Amino acid sequence: MNNAVLNWFGPDFSALNPLLQRLHTQGAQLNGVVNIRFGSGIAGWIGRRMARKLGAPTKAGKVPFSVEIHHSSEKLTWSRTFANTHTLTSEFYPVRTYQQGGYWIESSGPVKMQLGVSTKGGNWQWLQRSVSILGIPIPALFRPKVYAGKAIVNGLYQFEVKISLPALGFLFGYSGILHEGGEKLIE
């Protein structure tokens, strides 16, 4: 099978949990509930504005969530839908290969992030390297720090996304456990 994830990882693809391997060879639509959280004070205010721009709810709490994952030989595409309302689509383009110290460029509208990958424990953890808006690099002091990862826990797809700023701390995040077609991703 020729897809961007397999081509990028090469022989190291086998380091991923077998269920993450399946997800990234076949694609999927995963559904569940996410818990949306915001920082306090000014950080929460900024986090709510960021959530609004991403199409996420601006109230903390649990909401329905789905993500469609598609592959081609050139890219990986994630379309996330919060509360059955707004869909945020990101395209991930590989640069070099995993063995060559490569990375992915996530493109969501005018924002682009350069992301490395860790496969520690068979999981997939994005490692943010840089962020640019409209092609202008954001200096580390002002750059939102994004933590994002996915793992298989008890046959279910578990993920977390957290966004913070160096001077303010935690702004906004969401996490949850998703399933495919109402079933566990049984090994």
Rank of each mutant, 00 (worst) to 15 (best):
L156K: 06
Y93S: 03
G135I: 09
K150T: 08
G32A: 10
L16K: 06
F13P: 07
S66D: 12
P11W: 08
G116I: 02
A15M: 14
Y147H: 13
E183L: 14
I186C: 11
Y98M: 11
V5G: 00
L165M: 02
G121L: 15
P144I: 07
Y157W: 12
L115Y: 10
F92M: 11
T119K: 07
F172D: 00
K59T: 14
V153A: 13
E183V: 15
G182S: 06
L76K: 02
L171C: 13
R80G: 01
E160M: 04
L6S: 07
G169Q: 09
L6H: 05
Q99H: 14
H24M: 00
P139A: 04
H179L: 15
P18W: 12
S107C: 15
G173Q: 00
W124K: 02
F170N: 00
Q100G: 03
A51N: 03
S118P: 01
K162N: 11
F82H: 05
Y103I: 05
Q158R: 13
Q114K: 15
N2C: 12
W78Y: 14
I138E: 01
Q29S: 09
T85E: 14
S14D: 13
P64M: 09
G102M: 07
L23A: 11
L168R: 02
A140M: 04
E187H: 15
V111N: 13
H24L: 06
L141V: 14
V5R: 01
M113D: 14
R96V: 01
A56W: 00
P64N: 08
I42Y: 10
G44V: 08
P64Q: 07
L88T: 12
L178P: 02
S79L: 12
G135T: 11
L23T: 09
I46K: 11
G47L: 02
